[in-house]
């Protein structure tokens, strides 16, 4: 039963969503909305388990005075103090939660996103290694599109931009369609394997 119960829960919870979406009576009874709410609530309750893990790992760092244990103190202090403020005040305007979000969280997130440009540059140079014909094609296509999006393309030939648009609309679009269709089939197969209990790594050693 140790193995059967988790597998039954997996199958049933998946079946609930499928029935909720496809069967008319379930839709009319509002089952799907209920199941989605349950999932959101369960996820929210489960979410702070990350805090347990974070506390354990950094707690060990501090306790054993591992390298950077001072940073672990800083991180845990920031987490708990800010969490306390947030839970008391909520996300309304003018609260500590929104002040810190505007001053720190949002700008750092934007900066991180922007930093991808530096890394793309180095990635492009590494890609220039052109390990084989396929990689060479990838690099040539990338450069072709980069030039097409710059004023340089107009100076070289007005066909440059049109060709780039054609590549994106036809062969490129076809490849992405095939990738997407394949990915959906792969996802369906994986989901079916999970619901039928064939793929069961999530229940650990009980799977054996």
């Amino acid at each position: 039963m140790k193995k059967e119960i988790p597998l039954a829960i997996t199958g049933l919870s998946g079946l609930m969503v499928i029935v909720g979406e496809y069967l008319r009576f379930a839709q009319n009874l509002g089952w799907l909305t209920t199941f989605n709410t349950w999932f959101q609530v369960a996820t929210t309750v489960a979410f702070p388990i990350g805090l347990v893990s974070l506390t354990l790992v950094h707690g060990h760092n501090i306790q054993r005075k591992r390298a950077d244990w001072g940073l672990s103190i800083l991180m845990l202090a920031a987490t708990y103090v800010y969490l306390a403020f947030d839970l008391v005040s909520g996300p309304a305007n003018g609260t500590v939660m929104s002040w810190v979000y505007t001053a720190y969280i949002s700008p750092v997130a934007a900066t991180l996103y922007a930093m991808t440009s530096f890394l793309i540059t180095s990635a492009t140079f590494r890609t220039f290694r052109c390990r084989n014909r396929e990689a060479t094609l990838l690099v040539v296509a990338a450069l072709f599109i980069v030039v097409a999006q710059s004023p340089l393309a107009g100076l070289i030939s007005h066909y440059w931009g049109a060709t780039a648009t054609w590549i994106i609309n036809y062969p490129s679009n076809a490849a992405f369609r095939a990738i997407t269709l394949g990915a959906y089939l792969g996802a369906f197969a994986t989901a079916i394997r999970i619901l039928l209990g064939i793929e069961r790594a999530h229940i650990g050693s009980l799977a054996k």
Partner: peptide
């Protein structure tokens, strides 16, 4: 596929 990925990269 490589052509498409290159175009997306660019």
């Amino acid at each position: 596929i490589m052509l498409a990925l290159g175009a997306l990269f660019g």
